[in-house]
Design a binder for these strands. Structure first.
Lengths: 214, 214
DNA sequence: TAGTGTGAAGTCTTTCACAGCA
DNA sequence: TGCTGTGAAAGACTTCACACTA
């Protein structure tokens, strides 16, 4: 029986989001031959203040050495375990439309241990087809295959109208986290992260300072 | 000369992000034949507290009527103008790879007035091809076409290695906002919103409560 | 009566600033 | 000297709670 490491103090969500950046950068630095990194040099590269970085790493219990900085190898290990990417996870993809197909072959997922091991769609024309090495399965097989393939997470890339139903089914077959691309809120018990493309564009549009036309 | 409406007090970013949700829901309610909405009924649908909603709408200067709620038509108008989607905007898409192609035909963008009017790629095999009605242009034509087509925003869907250079060029041809799908930070003066898919999955993975294996 | 609008309180997050350490 | 770790202060955001009102 494996008991997962749990921090006593939960890490603030804004911090978790920055940890991804730290991890990417730390890995790049290690690959570039560096051994240690200081909060101020990370700060320069990422645009996050050095105090913020020290505070964030403090939450993880990562200790640096005054005058030197943080050892990259230890830092990376700790970031990976906190983010839950210290092992592979099997992921299901629901929806083999345009977004689904873009995600199927997204190499960075595999590089982080997120393995898309099953792809589903309702469309009869797609079921049975092999796309990027994934044979599209009918939704009827969802429960069966989720269990069989030990799938922990799922990516929802179906139209908004179908998303809640899919989410409910996924939850009931024991999937424990959902990445949702459908533009709607899902009502489930398991954690959900929404990727809302329209919302992102709207956020951006709201930031544009309108200037007088010339 | 058009002078854009600017609020005296800037709206908190978390509020702006929720405004997208309010807008989507308000439009659905109007389409469903409703005329008004109360903060508590919106709250039930969106999982945002009613006090939060009232506070958020207060920032926009939207006034509701006690005992009744907010008039949907006025609410929608105000949300649209705050989010900058009260008019169409021409958008360039850089990168006609998988993600780019998924975005090209994303119907919700057009529905919100974001019109992809030019598509670029470095790949010679793609340049000249017509994908979903968009003829892929060579990057060499970037400056010329951005100007000609009155493009205000751009979507970066190129590999991380190329993203900074593309961003710098876009900025220098006067594009005033960037939606970035490349997994890296961009250093530019114009506003950027990042859509980081790996980061989103990591955030999700970090939220999964690990349980003992059976 | 059913709902708004908003001071005030509370909570969460960031930044400051500096003692202390290798 | 160069950098960490962290109290304390500041700031940002959310929630409470209730006077008010159509």
């Amino acid at each position: 029986m494996r008991i997962a490491y749990r921090l006593l103090v939960s890490i603030p969500l804004p911090t978790v989001r920055r940890l991804s950046l730290y991890l990417r950068e730390a890995e790049a630095m290690l690959a570039g031959g560096m051994r240690t990194v200081s909060s101020s040099s990370l700060s320069d590269r990422l645009g996050v203040t050095d105090a913020q970085i020290r505070r964030d790493l403090g939450y993880l219990g990562v200790r640096g050495r005054p005058g030197i900085g943080y050892r990259l190898s230890g830092l990376i290990k700790r970031l990976r375990s906190t983010l839950g990417v210290d092992r592979s996870r099997n992921v299901a993809l629901i929806g083999a439309g345009r977004i689904g197909r873009a995600l199927m072959a997204y190499p960075s997922f595999a590089a982080r241990g997120f393995r898309i091991v099953a792809v589903f769609d309702v469309d009869r024309a797609l079921v049975g087809a092999s796309i990027d090495g994934h044979v599209v399965q009918p939704l009827a097989k969802l429960d069966e295959l989720i269990e069989e393939a030990l799938i922990e997470m799922a990516i929802i890339a179906v139209p908004a109208e179908a998303a809640q139903e899919v989410a409910t089914r996924l939850e009931s077959c024991g999937v424990s986290a959902l990445l949702n691309f459908a533009p709607c809120r899902l009502s489930v018990q398991v954690p959900v992260v929404d990727v809302d493309l329209v919302s992102s564009l709207e956020e951006l549009a709201s930031m544009v300072t309108e200037v007088p036309d010339h």
